[in-house]
Design a protein around this nucleic acid. Structure first.
Lengths: 335, 335
DNA sequence: GTGAAAGCGCTAACAA
DNA sequence: TTGTTAGCGCTTTCAC
């Protein structure tokens, strides 16, 4: 049974050396492919290591090298729709560099964050990724850290820091262009709270894209909350003020889903009469909507992957300060 | 800027000792409260440590003690609705023991899992938590591991292992009892695929609870998939076969949401004519439903917390093999 | 009450 | 081609 705490002594490289009948140093060289050894010796050592089930102690190795091949991920909310795919991308990227990540959930609390930072530094992580759940810029972790830091999704407000963000305006543009391409001309925008940078950026991006296409937005952007309830309400209201609207770009899939329900129940035929596009590509939501939602995927997993790559590069002495933007892509469903 | 990889040499306990004018060993004792030292000496050392911003190297400490104060969490899907709250609970519990967790996402792939396991063992984690995303029992990680393992949500199929699971039958009972308490008598069950243990257990639990209350289920349990589309379809079908049904217990919130829509659109008045209860307490879904869903929260965060506690105990030499069950609770909304 | 020295498991320089 | 030795940063006996 695997419950028993380890009583069996750890097999060390000394055991391997003894078993292979060579010195400790020789065993080390054989296992790491260093130095010049007879192939026969190498093989013998490897065989001994296998038989004994030897696994080198990363701890001892770290003590010597000063590197731990470990990074910390500090996330603002581990529950999040946003930080999860980001973390997944990061893990993917780090795996390539044989690194592994400590998970720290700060729950949006600066105290917890500082606490986790200290813990990570004590453990001598080689670098840190800070993953937020909102796109609003955040204060840097701390001045003068001994390791590189990369901010993902939520950028640092210090432009000298390295941040990776999604292309909010580009996402809005993709959505609007799709609506126009499918023949919509009177396009409205329903979104989340104006206090969120994401809502503001997407609204601005939509207005710009429409302007470039020679169109004006049907009414002002409707700011509300990131809920279906708001989407339903806003859709009904929109139809009252602009009965001829034929396209709605929504700031998120949750809002978009509310909008589809609101429009349908107000008597609009979807997708014939009105086209709806969301942002997020949150599958449970998008696929259950009627009709299933066309939406913009922000590419969060790629974003995380990119953040991981940038961190690895910085650890290797090639930092790339500044804001790095990751493009999203359109996912066409039926709406 | 925080990009610069650490050039500043790490301040070690030797520096602190020198600064305080004591020997290295004395500094160590002072900082850890060991041995017998003059209070004045302790203070002097502490002051020196503070001035130098000394943080002890966990790596060196681990080499000596053989413990790393680190555990691995292997999760089957980091995206999951299920493993996330579990991980959160685990992290919470571990924080108390000053431990920190490595995150490994196996993506349901045994090869990746074995790979991660090896990595974790190399890094000499003190213990491992395996978090699944389905309640079906899974094969143990490996025989004869040198560290304790706790399985969370998805139990090991070896009863000698330590597993923490949610109370599936109890959850079904809570749901059914609520329906009966609110006056429902003709209660049906719509749920996910019969191939999922969760669906089978919940159906069995519902049948038992109804029987004890002297009621029979309205028709057979309707197995399908964990989607809204299935819920909508099944609801319409149910109403055709059992027009007098006045309560539906659903195997998940997603299904329940589909069921509410299906019932409403088939002309049933909710919640007056038919009461609906789900399982999961997945807020985005439950709160957006019309009416908002009454549902059973499986207490996944507590489950994770419990798993963390059990792991800490096992690491301290007090293993508790067997299956540990965590109770859920009813969350009453309007459905 | 404090200092000196050994050793945790490993790698890397240097000797043989 | 292989063995020996020092030392990474810390804790812990054991002398003093």
């Amino acid at each position: 049974m695997s419950q028993q705490a380890g009583t069996r002594r750890r097999v060390g490289i000394a055991d391997v050396a003894a078993r292979a009948g060579v010195s400790l140093g020789t065993a080390s060289k054989a296992l790491n492919g260093r130095g010049t050894l007879r192939e026969e010796t190498r093989a013998r050592v490897r065989a001994a290591a296998d038989e004994l089930g030897f696994a080198p102690s990363t701890v001892a190795r770290s003590l010597l090298s000063g590197r731990t091949f470990t990074v910390g991920i500090i996330t603002t909310d581990s529950y999040g729709r946003f930080s999860i795919p980001v973390m997944r991308g990061v893990e993917d990227s780090l795996g390539v560099g044989e690194m592994i990540a400590f998970l720290c959930d700060s729950r949006d609390d600066p105290i917890r964050e500082a606490h986790h930072l200290r813990k990570l530094l004590e453990r001598q992580v080689d670098g840190i990724i800070v993953a937020g759940r909102r796109t609003d810029p955040r204060p840097p972790l701390s001045e003068n850290l001994p390791v590189p830091v990369v901010y993902a999704f939520a950028p640092s407000n210090d432009p000298e820091d390295c941040s990776v963000v999604s292309d909010e305006r580009g996402a809005a543009r993709l959505a609007v262009e799709h609506l126009v391409k499918t023949g919509r001309r009177r396009i409205a925008h329903i979104t989340g709270p104006q206090s969120h940078a994401a809502a503001r950026e997407r609204a601005a991006g939509a207005a710009d894209a429409l302007a470039e296409l020679g169109l004006a937005m049907a009414g002002e952007p409707m700011f509300g909350s990131w809920t279906e309830t708001w989407g339903r309400f806003a859709a009904a209201q929109l139809l009252r003020g602009h009965p001829d609207v034929d396209g709605v770009f929504c700031g998120s899939d949750v809002v978009a889903r509310g909008v589809t329900d609101g429009l349908r129940e107000a008597g609009a035929a979807l997708p014939m009469q009105v086209g709806v596009v969301g942002i997020d590509n949150w599958e449970v939501i998008a696929e259950a909507a009627r009709p299933p939602l066309t939406t913009v995927d922000l590419g969060l997993e790629q974003l995380g992957h990119r953040a991981g790559d940038l961190l690895l590069a910085a650890i290797d002495g090639h930092p790339a300060p500044g804001v790095h933007v990751v493009e999203g892509h359109l996912v066409v469903r039926e709406s």
